[in-house]
């Protein structure tokens, strides 16, 4: 294993539900194919061999934001749909 660039990122779950954490991991995995993930003590732990730690952290943060924003925006999107359908 020596010499492998082994990167590990811990991300605060920020109150995401389990299925949202799963989806967040899937979103990160789109950009980081060898991603390994686990949840430990309220932190989402992401590990990859081939992505720099900074890059992995950015991707993880974008995915985390996407999840929290999705939940926040459900009523807004419903409201605009109602406007467009009336």
């Amino acid at each position: 294993m020596s010499g492998l660039p082994f990167n590990r990122v811990m991300l605060d779950r920020r109150g995401l539900r389990t299925e949202q954490v799963d989806r967040c991991v899937a979103a990160v995995a789109r950009s980081v194919p060898d991603l390994v993930s686990s949840v430990q003590d309220g932190w989402l732990v992401l590990v990859s061999c081939d992505s720099s730690a900074d890059r992995l952290r950015s991707i993880s943060k974008a995915a985390s934001f996407a999840e929290s924003e999705f939940t926040r925006c459900i009523p807004l999107r419903r409201a605009v749909m109602e406007l467009l359908l009336t």
């Binding site: 943060k61 996407a66 924003e69 925006c73």
Partner: peptide, 21 residues
Amino acid sequence: MMRLPLRSRAMDDAFLLVGDS
């Protein structure tokens, strides 16, 4: 004041944020 939905994607040196429109 209400913030409209944004979606995000990590770029090399920043975050891309895109509205529904």
